[in-house]
Computed example of a mutant assay.
Amino acid sequence: SIQDDEYIVDLGDRTVDHISKVVKRARTIIWSGPLGIFEIQNFSHGTRRLIDSIANSQAFSLAGGGDTVSAISTFNAFDKISYVSTGGGAFLRYIERREIPIVSRFRRNHFFSHHQ
């Protein structure tokens, strides 16, 4: 029922409840990106609930990207996330391929072996 000129800017309660249940069972959480326009209080519900779910889980949690870091900062939750990376694209690339292009290039050029 969303019209062409309307936007979804946050998650509803049922979706957030489902995500919270998944997070509660998880052993590892990888998070990249807020769930709504968290900078506006009326649209921060999903992001705030996700952070609460992560904080209350026993999982190892990784969070990455500038907007994610901003959300973590907004809700004062740095001590509730196991590891936070400011790199967004590089963070995801590393998770996907276990490499970061610039580091691979340095390795190929033997930069590290000559400058340690």
Rank of each mutant, 00 (worst) to 15 (best):
Q3R: 13
D5F: 15
D5K: 13
E6I: 05
I8D: 08
V9D: 07
V9W: 01
D10M: 11
D10T: 00
D10I: 02
L11Y: 02
G12S: 06
D13N: 15
T15P: 00
V16Q: 04
V16T: 04
H18Y: 14
V23N: 09
K24L: 13
A26G: 05
A26R: 06
T28D: 14
I29Q: 10
I30H: 07
W31L: 04
W31R: 00
W31D: 02
W31F: 05
S32W: 06
G33K: 06
G33F: 06
G33L: 07
L35Q: 13
G36F: 05
G36K: 00
G36E: 09
I37M: 09
I37F: 10
E39R: 10
E39N: 11
E39Q: 14
I40G: 08
Q41F: 11
F43Y: 12
F43L: 06
S44Y: 06
S44C: 11
T47S: 04
R49S: 12
R49W: 04
I51M: 03
I51P: 01
S53V: 03
S53D: 03
I54Y: 04
A55G: 04
A55T: 01
A55F: 09
N56V: 11
N56W: 15
N56Y: 15
S57R: 08
Q58D: 14
A59L: 11
L62G: 05
T68L: 10
A71S: 05
I72V: 01
I72L: 09
S73I: 07
T74H: 07
T74W: 10
N76R: 08
A77M: 04
A77T: 07
F78R: 12
F78P: 00
D79F: 10
K80Q: 09
I81R: 01
S82A: 10
V84Y: 02
V84L: 06
S85M: 02
T86W: 05
G87C: 01
G89C: 03
F91A: 00
F91D: 00
F91V: 00
Y94V: 04
Y94C: 04
E96W: 11
E99Y: 12
E99G: 02
I102Q: 14
V103P: 05
V103K: 12
S104D: 10
R105A: 15
F106V: 13
R107P: 02
R107D: 09
N109Q: 14
F111Q: 12
F112A: 03
H114N: 15
Q116N: 14
Q116M: 15
Q116E: 15
